[in-house]
């Protein structure tokens, strides 16, 4: 009798310890993925938000300088990169949708597509950075370029970080490490990638278009 009452508890404890993020334990209305990463996402949003607002108020005192310098940016590159990130986010959400149905390989394929688009974004940004440095434009050229280079480079680093996260998720998905029941890791990485996307959605009109 003692054995029959103790055994189920010990089995449940072991499962919980082995899978602390098990999906079935998440309640209605919880954030998708790991809460710890969401705290990081909110912190990153705050940092970018402060930088966006700092850019806007600095521009308010230097409108002519910002408008003239903005003309040297390629709106086409910025728009293409926006489309690239939006499409990569779509691929990521399709990957999440696939793993929710237990389709691990399909999930890995969608995420690989997103990773490749991340590579396209990085390549376009590198061409833009190279063009600026070739024209002897640096952060000390003027206030606009200080903001433009620091904001876009900071975002660039987040894209790189997102690509590393996607790469590790793809590798685990290929090994069959996720399932329809346990895919918190995929949702966590996806949330980070979408954050990178929507920050660019604000950055693009703010720095490239608004005048």
């Amino acid at each position: 009798m003692d054995a029959s009452t103790n055994t189920p508890d010990s089995v449940m404890l072991t499962e919980a310890q082995q899978n602390p993020n098990i999906k079935s334990e998440k309640g209605q209305g919880d954030l998708p993925g790991d809460l710890a990463l969401w705290i990081f996402i909110f912190a990153e949003m705050l940092v970018f938000g402060v930088l966006f607002v700092a850019y806007a108020f600095t521009r308010a005192n230097n409108v002519a300088l910002f408008n003239d310098s903005q003309l040297t940016l390629s709106q086409t590159s910025g728009a293409i990169n926006t489309l690239v990130l939006i499409t990569s986010s779509y691929f990521v959400v399709r990957g999440v949708s696939a793993i929710k149905r237990g389709l691990s390989k399909q999930c890995a394929h969608w995420l690989t597509g997103a990773l490749l688009l991340g590579g396209v974004f990085i390549s376009i940004k590198l061409v833009e950075f190279y063009a600026k440095f070739a024209a002897d434009i640096t952060m000390s050229t003027n206030t606009f370029y200080m903001f433009y280079l620091s904001l876009t480079f900071f975002h660039f680093m987040h894209v790189l970080m997102g690509m590393v996260i996607l790469g590790s998720i793809i590798a685990k998905a290929h090994r069959g490490g996720y399932s329809a029941q346990e895919h918190a890791g995929v949702e966590t990485g996806a949330s980070f990638w979408h954050m990178v996307d929507f920050l660019w959605i604000i950055l693009f009109p703010l720095v490239y278009i608004i005048r």
């Binding site: 209605q28 209305g29 919880d30 954030l31 998708p32 939006i86 986010s89 779509y90 990521v92 959400v93 999440v96 949702e187 996806a190 949330s191 979408h194 954050m195 996307d197 929507f198 959605i201 604000i202 009109p205 703010l206 278009i209 608004i210």
Partner: peptide, 24 residues
């Protein structure tokens, strides 16, 4: 208009791609 478009796009990404529409 540009800000409104950015706001709409960001909300769409948050609600439908990040799947926050059913969150608390």
């Amino acid at each position: 208009t540009l800000l409104a478009i950015a706001l709409i796009k960001s909300q769409i990404v948050a609600n439908y791609f990040m799947d926050l529409r059913n969150s608390k």
